[in-house]
Design a protein around this nucleic acid. Sequence first.
DNA 1: TAAAAAGTGGGGAATAGTGGGGAATGAAGA
DNA 2: TCTTCATTCCCCACTATTCCCCACTTTTTA
Lengths: 148, 148
Amino acid sequence: MFRGATALNLDAKGRLAVPAKHRDALTGQAGAGLVLTAHPHRCLLLYPQSAWEPIQQKIMSLPSLDKQASLLQRLLVGFAEDMALDGAGRVLVSPVLREFAALEKQVMLVGQGTHFELWSLDGWRAQLDEALSQGAQVLPPEMGDFSL
Amino acid sequence: MFRGATALNLDAKGRLAVPAKHRDALTGQAGAGLVLTAHPHRCLLLYPQSAWEPIQQKIMSLPSLDKQASLLQRLLVGFAEDMALDGAGRVLVSPVLREFAALEKQVMLVGQGTHFELWSLDGWRAQLDEALSQGAQVLPPEMGDFSL
DNA sequence: TAAAAAGTGGGGAATAGTGGGGAATGAAGA
DNA sequence: TCTTCATTCCCCACTATTCCCCACTTTTTA
């Protein structure tokens, strides 16, 4: 279960040191792999490989001649990259993924239960501004009576 | 059932000593965990972990490609951090959570039944000012017949 | 066509800052 | 007066950041 937001820096090569407290949960036993891909909201998604595979299978089972389905396939699977933590707990974010999410030096790693989202700092702030500016309207209709 | 408002100080590292009278109720038997997260009204929410989990499950069951749902997920789960009371009954409020709620040294811990809210002193005062300036209009329609 | 230069990235280490853990102290309550 | 508790501050370990060496690949130049 990944949660919490952490401010991090990318190094000069575009590498990200995954916070020490999340490393074991991310890679599990035997240092399993990770998958980094693009999200339609212009952030990146970081999954344990085992959590990603069923998602990719579901996406690729969509009809590939359907325009909407193929757009999603190209985005989510087209951008997906296998990676592993190095000895210092870092992953390399490739130039195409950095460009897609407009990542510069300062980024936010945001836990979302089964995976993390990776945002540029500006992108993250824009998300927060949007969430906070909407007040009650942020709740979808099916959660109209939701209480914290 | 958490109630009462307490003025507290954060220490130099951003830690908060939970008032002794609330510690057992918050952590229950066997020192169970807590969850601290963000609220759209720019305060923080402190829940026993067991009370938080159903809320998080409900939030994460929303469709994650839906823009409105994902804004809520990013705020509530993105900011949610697991924590435990240390030997002196303290919890560490991370820099991103402190920034979100504009917490400085003086804070207010405010019981809200199932959880606590944590406010900056200025934020709390603004809430009081707003509540008191509205007089009777502060009641939502469904509580029109409410009496103290 | 071959050599040189530039770019990219693996791997690692030094260091400043963060945070775990604890203790002293003064205030408040019993 | 004694006990409890919140505040403040300290020691020390861990971690994220920054920077470096080196190797390989690609591009540019002679």
